[in-house]
Simulated assay, not measured.
Amino acid sequence: MNHESLSKNPKRVMIGLSGGVDSAVAAHLLLEQGHEVEALFMKNWEEDDEAGYCAAAEDLADAEAVAERLGIRLHRVNFATEYWDHVFDSFLREYQALRTPNPDVLCNKEIKFAAFLDHALGLGAEAIATGHYARILRDDSGSRLLRCADEDKDQTYFLHLLDQAQLSRALFPLHGLTKTEVRALARRLGFANAAKKDSTGICFIGERRFRDFLARYLPREPGPIETPEGKQIGEHQGLAYYTLGQRQGLGVGGIAEGREAPWYVVAKDVAGNRLVVAQDTHHPLLMSNGLQGLRPHWIRGAPPPSLPFRCRCRLRHRQPLQVCDLVATTEDSCEVRFAEPQRAVTPGQSIVFYQEEECLGGAVIERGRSD
């Protein structure tokens, strides 16, 4: 097997330079490996407020400073139309359906490893690189996506929709480094963004007052907040703005067993437009023994050869790996059983499967099952 074999043969590589410290250090490492490196800054969001424009301008300035320091050419491209059509429109449809989507997953598939890859190849690149924390192992059967050295930063969860064609052209130079090591290297290299905060929030849109942002595109439909027993204790602003397991931003308080205790979203009653909450972090309504998934994707092109298949999974980024059994899978759906009940199995999010270090693929969660 040949780990990151592309990195051992000098190539014309286009690095996605975001203005952050990860892609900056990744660009430096590519140069150290002898590649001919150019960079691309992607602008992917137009519908914005003044604060957002300032953030985008700051990111561009940081990317320009890194490119200048490394002596590499920086290209600029606007993928706002592609982002809206292939990521944000789906994001809104999912919220309208009262699901909780993960735009970072689709963003990687459609923008960073599709639009960016196509554009880079058109500019003469042979491969693309990003600052993702993940590894690629290549052998005669294809490319495998593996977890990285920094388990806390591992981003394979967000990359599970990539396919063989995309991985065959990809490089992840940070695969062997921890975030602490990346920042230390950035300081030694004199990068001005060495201490820059990691980007958070919606992919390419950034941090927002989420409810206010979503209300620009989806109408508010207030309704009652109730306990599982049917007692109304408040009013919600619209079921689309809440997710299973949520604790913050509910606007209710109360006493449980003679003491103050937080409330958690345990269910959404779509027919009655009710948000159901309880003062129990592991309320039975929050727990699932398994789930039904939609549109399973297998990175190596095919599901496991025999079922049931024992593996591990994640239901959210940074969750410790959980033991599960893939009981059934078709082109359109899959069924999973957990070895231990799981909390807040959220429709619209992703379940991602692992065997040892390898990320096998994943599926969109349709619903949790407690039977």
Rank of each mutant, 00 (worst) to 15 (best):
F158T: 04
L159C: 06
L161Y: 07
D163F: 11
D163K: 14
Q164T: 03
A165M: 07
S168K: 13
R169P: 10
L171N: 03
L171G: 01
T180Y: 05
V182W: 07
V182K: 03
A184L: 11
F191G: 07
D198G: 15
S199D: 01
T200H: 04
I202C: 11
E207F: 07
E207I: 12
R208H: 15
D212Q: 14
D212P: 02
D212A: 15
F213G: 02
L214K: 03
L214F: 06
A215E: 13
L218K: 05
E221N: 12
G223M: 09
P224F: 11
E226Q: 12
E229M: 13
E229L: 13
G230L: 09
K231F: 00
Q232A: 15
Q232K: 15
G234I: 03
H236N: 07
H236I: 03
G238W: 04
L239M: 07
L239S: 05
A240G: 10
Y241W: 09
Y241P: 00
L244T: 02
R247H: 09
R247T: 08
Q248W: 03
G251S: 06
I255T: 14
I255D: 09
I255L: 14
G258R: 07
E260N: 04
P262I: 00
P262C: 01
W263G: 02
V265T: 08
A267C: 04
K268Q: 11
D269V: 05
D269Q: 05
G272P: 00
N273E: 07
N273V: 11
N273D: 08
R274E: 11
